[in-house]
Design a protein around this nucleic acid. Structure first.
Length: 1139
RNA sequence: GGGGGAGUAGCUCAACGGUUAGAGCAUGGCUCUUAUACAGCCCCGGUUGGAGGUUCGAAUCCUCCCUCCCCUACCA
């Protein structure tokens, strides 16, 4: 007979064996290899497709996948979230729910561009323009397809079940797009029918109903639906163009929005430069002004002082300066003499000479002036933002170079000087600085100022400064036009006092109303989102880049703005260029070719060049992926999603925000009902994973070394709101826990095979009917029933951590109590009927456990299920993932009293072991008696059976219950403080003292008089405590006493056990098969022989050996055994190997 | 700067205002076992960040201070 390899026995194996046999299971599993086998099994049997078919049309559970950016291989930090996603989808599938299973990829935006640029060695946008936008955009698409394929493969490896595209097909499409995007290509559609289109257009249709598979945010439908969202915003007057001084990344050539700023703050060293602005009307006197950005001095137009601050005139040598009084100490170098002091208000209007009045750009701006007609001159202005903590108390104002400066300049009508182009290069008109990079002009500017005697001091300061979150370049401020969605006013009244009209006019309050309908896990998510909504600025949706949503905004020079809401509308209104766009996805540069006729002036007007913020792409998916336009009935069936889950750092202002904002505009209702957030994956050392710190782990490496079930267990076992410290040691610890389960399973299979045992159906009914089934068996299945119920409740509440704790506790009980107590029952020498029951019970317990842990560890559970069920029961579901949640099947077995009693017995075992160890009595040494007192009036159910278990476990001949009259224990009263605390108040110390001293009286009705009060029976617990001077162990009223007196018989019995142990050790040493017979020689003095003689038969049976007394040949390795009756040596003579 | 959270054993974390603050890991010492590279037990380890307060009773509630984290804002 051929051995059956793999997880599943082949049909050949089935037919060639007469009896069903479980596949043998190694005690040292190769979890990784097993996972690969199961992946193949699922693929071959189309298990996932069958699961979907099984639940199709039933009650729905709608999960909306937050798109993963398809820009790099997936990391272990993605695996955390994806483990949750798969876990809950599998769980709800076991609840019979119909699901969509659509995976999502985020495709557009700067993330991808930056990587493509890096691959091409580009350093700025000019490189892209020179390369060609069409080619560049195509490379971005190709990169997305490459990593979508890769991440799909990795996610499959993780065990995720999603409706994704074949990675090979994605790569083929990528290659076709690279080769010739117009080429006609045929792929298999979602219903198996071929779909033919150009390569480019097929890529644009990915994820749509006819093609199926993952959704891609670069799809046509996704982009066009955002158009309709923007058109709706425009219709309501919420879309506008802002002209502002914005944080700008000179490398990326784009503005950075408020949503993106936070991530980029980092410490940075900058010059702290103090310069002199000579006062025109006070010869010999100058303002001292401090700046950390010398390049902005070229654009200075004013100096701001605090209206109420005090300013002083000081003399230093020949020079006289003005500065804030509070800044004297840190701003001035050297001695000084205060000459005069006045408030800032008095300085207002003073004229001064600017630092770079010779530059043409400055002269032009000043000649144009602020107020009409009059040329502008540098002067002092008041500003309430001025402080004295840093600098000189006089702030250099360059409205073209800073947001606050801009706001002030706008308010006061100051000229604006904008020195930088989009690449951070100084524009013409700035003399020697023109054409130079902004980062290189600080030194020459300082030199010039020194030369002009305007220089006062240069220091180096470290401060927090914003950087580009994507490429790390320090940001500068530029005057630019960007497009915004207005969040509406913030009213200075409580939310519940707002009028409907006010709410209608303010998107932020509408969103606040919507998020009340969401269940936030953890709960602080609601507060955090609310806080963000209240404080957020308008949403900047434009980016001056190439790869992304083409904003459908047509901004005519005449002032009219048109926003196109769909491809059809664009076609209808196109005045020119449609032929160039036809046949392309709505991306640059092709969509840019289309011009519409301005509805106001009739001139042709082109699209603004900007692309959209990528969170628009991700925020529209509750509509685009659920067929909002094409199939409203379908959409209504799945919207809003029941569940979304993502890592919360960042997402309150990103995905969660854009989902909510867009759904509020589109429908004014929430797009999801429950949000489950989790934190970040850190390295094992608690620091961010970082390659150079040596604590980073790649997903693929983790999967192939620790196995994904171990990973998934670690993730499920983590507190979601805390960062998880992920590493190899933690994985080892997790695997050790799982190996306990594996060992139980392996034990079961080993002995079931030896016994030729076959499973039968219907153990639940049989157990209920039998009435005499062993208590231990009924106990573990009661535990299993409770486990199923509790894990079900946990997972319905999205509490995976508690689920793993329950499972872990169950494994502990199964291993250290059920199996430990049942091992002997499964031996060949055991009573056959009892053995049958033990096998049936353990089989049922393992299968129940496999089903309960299936959502968390899909591979390990499947492996166990395949062997224990599928190999023996062809008419049951052929995958654990096709089974229903087992609570109902098991609920009749959930005997709570039995579980409580067993818990008491297990505690008693611990106490007995403690006593033995204190007395120096090994468990192997049988003892005559043990006494046991239970807490209060507790009784053990099925006392006789449970005490038998206890006696056997702690190796005593008998157990006696301690009665009230016993000399061994006292009865004590434990007042139940939570019940009586409030009532008694100050009387408590007296009651507790009485309890400690045993000064109480138990009355006939069970109430207790003590410490001057009477407590009802249910307000106290009566416990046993040991009498002083007795060698006993106790815990919460449970008392155990052991009889430490050893009779000769007990000693002899102990010796026999010792010998047995030694022989087993020798067998282990010799690596003997379980069922092999061996011959053993025992070399011992006559006294020892006499002691052992009566027990030899049972020792031989237990050890499958033939024992003879006699000297041990030198050729045989002897083992010393220290027996109570004397020393002995044993030797394993020969293996009595059968034929 | 504003808001929130957290400080508990060497490490990671528990502990409805209720008796003597517990687990896991690590260290050390034992024990059990043909589940044999499995498992269990015990010891050690704490002024619960500090100082006050409320209370019969505080790790828990309040106030102040110290440290760290998160969110948010950001200035010359």
């Amino acid at each position: 007979m051929e051995p059956c390899e793999g997880i599943v026995q082949s049909a050949h194996c089935h037919t060639s064996t007469e009896k069903t046999m479980f596949r043998p299971v190694s005690s040292k599993p190769d979890l990784v290899a097993q996972e690969h086998e199961i992946l193949a099994l699922w693929r071959d049997r189309r298990t996932f497709a069958r699961l979907r078919a099984q639940n199709a049309g039933k009650e729905r559970w709608s999960f909306l996948d937050g798109p993963i950016t398809a820009n790099n291989p997936m990391g272990v930090h993605h695996a955390w979230g994806r483990a949750y996603k798969d876990l809950f989808q599998r769980f709800w599938a076991m609840q019979g729910r119909d699901q969509r299973y659509q995976n999502g990829f985020d495709c557009q935006g700067l993330w991808v561009e930056v990587n493509v640029e890096r691959d091409l060695g580009f350093t700025n946008k000019r490189d892209i323009e020179a390369y060609g936008i069409a080619e560049f955009v195509s490379l971005c698409k190709q990169r997305v397809l490459t990593y979508a394929a890769r991440q799909t493969e990795q996610s499959i490896r993780l065990g995720m079940w999603m409706d994704w595209n074949d990675p090979h097909e994605l790569r083929r499409l990528r290659d076709e797009v690279a080769d010739d995007p117009t080429k006609q290509v045929t792929v298999a559609g979602s219903d198996g029918q071929p779909v033919t289109d150009s390569a480019e257009m097929l890529v644009g249709r990915l994820g749509m109903p006819d093609l199926g598979g993952s959704y891609f945010t670069f799809s046509d439908e996704n982009n066009y639906l955002i158009w309709s969202f923007l058109a709706e915003c425009h219709r309501r007057g919420w879309l506008y163009k802002g002209h502002d001084s914005m944080p700008w990344c000179s490398r990326c050539g784009t503005g950075i929005s408020q949503h993106e700023m936070t991530e980029g703050y980092a410490d940075r060293e900058d010059p702290g430069l103090t310069v002199k602005f000579p006062l025109l009307d006070r010869p010999g006197e100058a303002l001292l002004v401090w700046t950390t950005t010398p390049w902005t001095l070229t654009s200075n137009v004013a100096a701001a002082v605090g209206e109420e601050l005090r300013y002083v005139r000081v003399r230093q040598g020949e020079e006289v300066y003005w500065l804030g009084r509070g800044t004297l100490k840190h701003a001035l170098v050297g001695d000084f003499q205060v000459l005069e002091e006045m408030t800032g208000r008095k300085l207002e209007g003073w004229r001064y000479a600017g630092p770079f009045d010779d530059l043409p750009a400055v002269q032009a701006a000043f000649a144009a002036g602020g107020a009409p007609g009059a040329p502008y001159e540098h002067r002092v202005v008041v500003w309430d933002e001025v402080g004295e903590e840093e600098g000189t108390g006089i702030v250099h104002i360059a409205p073209g170079c800073g947001a606050e400066d801009f706001a002030l300049g706008k308010k006061l009508g100051l000229p604006m000087i904008a020195p930088l182009d989009e690449n951070g290069v100084v524009l013409p008109g700035f003399g020697p600085y023109s054409g130079r990079d902004v980062r290189d002009v600080a030194d020459p500017i300082v030199e010039t100022l020194k030369h002009r005697r305007r220089f006062y001091r240069l220091e180096t300061i470290t401060h927090r400064y914003p950087h580009c979150w994507r490429c790390g370049t320090p940001l500068v401020f530029r005057l630019v036009d960007e497009w915004y969605v207005s969040m509406g006013p913030v009213y200075d009244v409580p939310r519940d006092r707002l009028t409907p009209e006010q709410v209608d006019a303010s998107l932020r309050y509408q969103i606040m109303d919507v998020i009340q309908d969401i269940k936030w896990i953890p709960g602080f998510g609601y507060e955090r989102e609310l806080d963000w909504l209240l404080n957020m600025h308008d949403w900047m949706i434009s980016k001056k880049r190439y790869w992304g949503l083409a904003l459908p905004i047509y901004d005519c020079g005449c002032g009219a703005v048109t926003v196109i809401g769909s491809r059809e509308e664009l076609a209808e209104r196109a005045a020119e260029g449609w032929d160039l766009f036809e046949g392309h996805t709505p991306h640059r540069p092709y969509v840019d070719a289309v011009k519409i006729r301005c509805p106001s002036c009739g001139e042709p007007v082109g699209r603004i060049a900007d692309v959209g913020n990528p969170w628009l792409d991700a925020g529209i998916v509750p509509f685009s992926t659920m067929h909002y336009r094409s199939d409203p009935d379908y959409w209504k069936g799945w919207f809003p999603a029941d569940f979304v889950t993502e890592s919360f750092p960042g997402q309150f202002r990103n995905w969660f925000y854009s989902l909510l904002a867009m759904s509020t505009v589109m429908r004014r209702e929430t797009p999801f009902k429950t949000l489950f957030g989790y934190a970040l994956v850190f390295g094992e050392d608690g620091r961010q994973m970082h390659k150079s710190w040596g604590n980073a782990i790649e997903f693929d490496e983790a999967a192939e070394r620790m196995g994904v079930d171990v990973m998934r267990w670690m993730f499920a076992n983590a507190r979601p709101e805390d960062n998880i410290n992920f590493g190899w040691h933690a994985a080892d610890e997790a695997r050790r826990r799982l190996l306990v389960l594996w060992n139980v399973y392996s034990f079961f299979v080993t002995y079931a095979r030896l016994a030729g045992w076959e499973p039968k159906r219907g153990i639940v009914a049989e157990m209920k009917a039998a009435g005499t089934w062993p208590a231990l068996d009924r106990w573990i299945l009661a535990r299993a029933a409770r486990l199923a119920g509790e894990v079900e409740v946990d997972l319905m509440e999205y509490d995976a951590l508690d689920a793993t704790r329950e499972i872990d506790d169950f494994i502990e009980d199964l291993s250290t109590w059920y199996l430990r107590r049942s091992r002997d029952r499964m031996r060949a020498s055991a009573d056959p009927a009892d053995r049958e029951q033990a096998f049936s019970t353990l089989h049922a317990a393992l299968v129940a456990l496999a089903r309960v842990m299936a959502p968390i560890m899909p591979f390990l559970s499947e492996s166990i299920y395949q062997n224990l069920i599928v190999s023996a029961e062809p008419d049951l579901p052929d995958s654990v993932h096709l089974t229903a949640w087992p609570t109902d099947e098991l609920k009749d077995l959930n005997d709570r009293q039995l579980q409580a009693s067993m818990k008491t017995v297990m505690r008693a075992v611990d106490l007995a072991r403690t006593l033995r160890s204190q007395a120096g009595l090994k468990t192997r040494q049988p003892l005559a008696r043990m006494w046991l007192a239970l807490p209060g009036v507790d009784r053990l159910v099925e006392q006789e059976a449970l005490l038998d278990l206890l006696a056997d476990e702690v190796n005593v001949k008998s157990i006696e219950m301690i009665g009230d009259e016993s000399a061994l224990v006292d009865r004590r009263v434990k007042p139940l403080l939570p019940k009586i605390g409030k009532k008694l108040g100050a009387a408590i110390p007296a009651v507790m003292a009485a309890a400690r001293e045993g000064a109480f009286e138990i009355l006939a009705d069970g109430s207790v008089r003590m410490g001057g009060v009477t407590l009802a029976a249910d307000e106290v617990e009566i416990q046993a405590t040991p009498r002083p001077g007795t060698a006993v162990a106790h815990d919460e009223g449970l008392v155990v006493v052991i009889d430490i007196e050893l009779t000769p018989e007990l000693r002899a019995e102990g010796d026999a056990r010792e010998l047995q142990r030694a022989i087993q050790d020798a067998r282990k040493e010799a690596v003997v098969e379980l069922d092999d017979e061996v011959a053993v020689l025992v070399d011992a003095p006559a006294a020892v022989r006499r002691t052992l003689e009566p027990y030899l038969g049972s020792v031989e049976a237990e050890t499958r050996s033939k024992i003879d007394f006699g000297p041990i040949p030198a050729t045989v390795t002897a083992l010393e055994v220290d027996l109570d009756s004397g020393a002995a040596r044993i030797g394993l003579l020969s293996k009595a190997v059968g034929p």
